[in-house]
Design a protein around this nucleic acid. Sequence first.
DNA 1: TGATGTGAAGCGGTTCACAGCC
DNA 2: GGCTGTGAACCGCTTCACATCA
Lengths: 226, 226
Amino acid sequence: MKAEKISELTTNRLSIYLRCLNELSAAGKTTVSSDHLAKEFHLNSAQIRKDLAYFGEFGVRGVGYYVEDLRNHLRKILGLDKEISVCIIGSGRLGTALSEYKGFSDSNFRIVDLFDSDPKKVGKKVGNVFIEDIKNFSEIVKRDNIEVAVIAVPAAYAQEVYETVLKAGIKAVMNFAPVPLKAVEDVKLKTVDLTSCFESLSYFLAGNVEINGTAVKPETKGRRKK
Amino acid sequence: MKAEKISELTTNRLSIYLRCLNELSAAGKTTVSSDHLAKEFHLNSAQIRKDLAYFGEFGVRGVGYYVEDLRNHLRKILGLDKEISVCIIGSGRLGTALSEYKGFSDSNFRIVDLFDSDPKKVGKKVGNVFIEDIKNFSEIVKRDNIEVAVIAVPAAYAQEVYETVLKAGIKAVMNFAPVPLKAVEDVKLKTVDLTSCFESLSYFLAGNVEINGTAVKPETKGRRKK
DNA sequence: TGATGTGAAGCGGTTCACAGCC
DNA sequence: GGCTGTGAACCGCTTCACATCA
């Protein structure tokens, strides 16, 4: 184990490993090798070992990993051993869908507030959550101990909302608006850009492109799986 | 320009560049340099030039890029000059939210079908779209010329649904279920795993006070307690 | 002069392959 | 024998820096 900087790709995968372990645990498995994990869940065994080794020596040579033990380690590493309060900004389709997203119900994430700037929406209830006025963002963040903000507003307002979020002292932001926000030191920003995801699929389907009369067929790189 | 393999990272960025150009166009700009683009939208100018150069010599030295010209090229490269029919499988929160997602309304993507396996949901209408029975998937895909399938079902059903999608001959799939699906040659699969996105944020929040290289140094190399 | 297009360097993530340990 | 943990090789993306050209 070494004290290096851990890449986001690694932390994303830790989350995936944890879910796989949860399944194995539910199935009554007590140990698992990196190879079995990889085979069963379409992962890469060397990568699993390397990812885990950043954090400690969790395995036993000749045996593999103890499922329960590794689950506990991963939960702790990912900070999933305590509740995290989340707010969603933007009560449109996406915002409301997220606020009731089933994936959260048995997780440690709690959607505690929904914000909007539209006076017609403020005060209404979505699921168990009242829609608050974005004007009161900072106070409510403090009141409810919110640690994560989700930006689900139209692209044109995203940067402005992001700055409101930063001012309130929030350190982890998830952005669903299709805009590259200005990154800030010390604040974790993840953008999920659905538009570019779909347009990237479209590129793949288009395949052939003709440019200036010349037919060009750049192939998309295939993903290598082991 | 060369006919190389284009990475998905590049195609994602092309989509972003296009949106930036749309804004510039709306603002009445006729030319733009890679440097201006980069500054204004928090991008990297060398990367912009390199990404574009994969597909042709669109710029003019000493001047930059003609906004309208480049927009047209990008639209064509991304295959956004024609309609693409999309179906969504799973009419839960996420599926219905996506089916009415505003981002699609002025794009070339058309959500033409929504599928579910629940007989209580089949036949109901969401927005303008009827919920169809997943049993009829293959026929409806053919009938409606569907090119893209979106998987928005619970994790446990995702692999099974994915196989149904493959059997129907679909070549581009967007997966929102938090499971690594078995990749298949010739089919473009993109997984957006919201759970691991959030858990990765959680890691960051936890990491500030835990083993993470920069912060608190863990014990020196050696055994770990169990 | 000013900005592109691009070889080359740099960097970081992935995969290999094997020593080390159970 | 089996499997982990890890240095090293590999690979690919990003960034640099500059020749090139309008």
